[in-house]
Design a protein around this nucleic acid. Structure first.
Length: 457
DNA sequence: TCTTATT
């Protein structure tokens, strides 16, 4: 009996040991003395590691960092909902000294294969104070280098980081980030430098202010997504129907993570809009949402008509649409966060779609079973199939989205039809979108009349 | 004129 207990005890010790070491990045620790559990020093530093190729996991990264000391924990950062590798990681060494060594040896010092920028190794945001010591500097001359900027700010205190922002071609964007060691130093720089002079080639005087907070940056990105989706106008956000739409997006987002049917773009958009809703509710949104003009401005016009349409979906089964294939979107997922913009998004609203959905949208109006088709009236004049499709994607699998167009003028008639693969999605869409305000109009969204319905006249 | 990411 006693022997049994001893065995259990030993077994549990082994389990504890294994689990603890796993924190070091998915196992791979060769020896595991029973009594040894990795500990970190009380003053250990958690490091943020950036510019990691997305195909590298903990086990691949471990060798790079192990040379500076024993690793306590190494975690690749992944998206909460999609599990997608975010191209960065957290790294904690057992010893503070190892972290300092790794930072000075690696930070900005080498570039991992496939990356355009050097690896980043620095204390994680959670370690230090917030961003109250980081300045945004605008209206710099295009010729000014990191060093020029540093010289300008040096008199006000010790500078941790100083970077001129550059485009892909290396030309300066005329602005920079300068991080001081303390808030007071940063404030002093603002007081002395903001508006104090005009740099050669700049259109107005020097701007020196605290950089956007994390929240402000998130907002900026969400506004971009919202405008790329082409469904928001400045008025929309203040209208109650917005909440209904957001609600649907939030619900959808949970499904989306598993269904793999919607495009990654839709997934991300749903998540971001949830966050936007939260910010909105907290009264954080101060700047107006950028007005959108889908299919116009600098965007390439929708390209659906020009897109080769792959084979039609399988024939309709007795219960409606059967076995619609899931899109293969692995590659898109990998590149989704590149520059924060999906490559499709960067081109045009229409191109933001999953290829399968593009194909569907390019098809002839494809009517689903009764109860699955909705009629939409009072669409904005500039909405085409793709904008309407994007608007209804959050409610389910869209089989078809067709805006009716005047043959003579090629202008939208401001109404269209969307078909889902099930009646519940259609109902959800009606629920959320009927009365939804876009610009000065409100959508009318209802079930499509069955084809054989009797009309009184 | 607000980066390339911060569980």
């Amino acid at each position: 009996m006693t022997r049994v207990y001893i065995n259990i005890f030993i077994y549990m010790c082994v389990r504890v040991c294994v689990c603890t070491l796993r924190r070091g990045g998915g196992g791979g620790v060769p020896s595991c003395p029973l009594h040894f559990v990795p500990m970190k020093e009380a003053d250990a530093i958690k490091l943020f590691v950036g510019q990691i190729p997305r195909n590298l996991e903990e086990k691949d990264l471990k060798p790079i960092f192990e040379q500076f000391g024993k690793i306590y924990e190494l975690t690749v950062i992944k998206d909460k909902y999609t599990g997608m590798h975010k191209g960065c990681a957290f790294l904690t060494y057992c010893a503070r000294e190892s972290a300092l060594k790794a930072q000075s040896a690696l930070h900005e010092q080498k570039t991992l294969p496939g990356m355009n920028r050097p690896i980043q190794v620095k204390p994680a945001d959670s370690e230090g104070r917030g961003e109250d010591r980081k300045l945004f500097v605008g209206m710099l001359g295009k010729q000014q280098s990191d060093e020029d900027v540093r010289r300008l700010f040096e008199p006000f205190g010790s500078i941790d980081e100083c970077t001129v922002l550059r485009g892909p071609d290396g030309t300066s964007k005329g602005c920079a980030f300068v991080k001081f060691q303390g808030h007071a130093e940063a404030q002093a720089a603002i007081n002395s430098l903001h508006g104090s002079r005009t740099m050669p080639g700049a259109s107005s005087s020097l701007v020196v202010k605290f950089a956007d907070t994390e929240k402000e940056r998130g907002l900026r990105r969400m506004q971009q997504v919202a405008s790329q989706l082409g469904i928001f106008s400045p008025m929309t956000l203040n209208f109650p129907a917005y909440n209904a739409y957001t609600q649907a997006l939030v619900q959808q987002q949970a499904l989306v993570a598993q269904s793999a049917y919607l495009s990654p773009v839709a997934t991300v958009a749903a998540v971001q809009m949830q966050q936007m809703a939260a910010l909105n509710a907290n009264g954080i949104i101060a700047t107006p949402i950028t007005p959108i003009t889908p299919s116009s401005g600098t965007n390439t016009p929708p390209t659906i008509a020009a897109t080769p349409v792959p084979a039609l979906p399988p024939p309709i089964g007795v219960n409606g649409y059967s076995s619609v294939p899931a899109p293969s979107n692995g590659q898109q997922t990998e590149t989704l966060y590149t520059n924060g913009v999906h490559p499709y998004q960067a081109q045009s609203p229409a191109a933001a779609l999953d290829p399968l959905q593009q194909a569907y949208a390019g098809m002839q109006h494809y009517t689903g079973p009764e109860g699955c088709n909705i009629f939409i009236y009072h669409l904005p004049q500039e909405f085409s199939d793709s904008e309407m499709l994007q608007m209804f994607l959050p409610f389910g699998n869209v089989i078809s989205a067709k805006v009716f167009v005047d043959r003579a003028t090629n202008q939208s008639k401001c109404f269209g039809f969307v078909s889902f693969d099930n009646p519940a999605s259609a109902q959800a869409a009606i629920q959320a979108m009927n009365g939804f305000q876009i610009g000065m109009k409100r959508l009318k969204v209802q079930l499509k009349r069955p084809k054989d319905a009797n009309r009184p006249y």
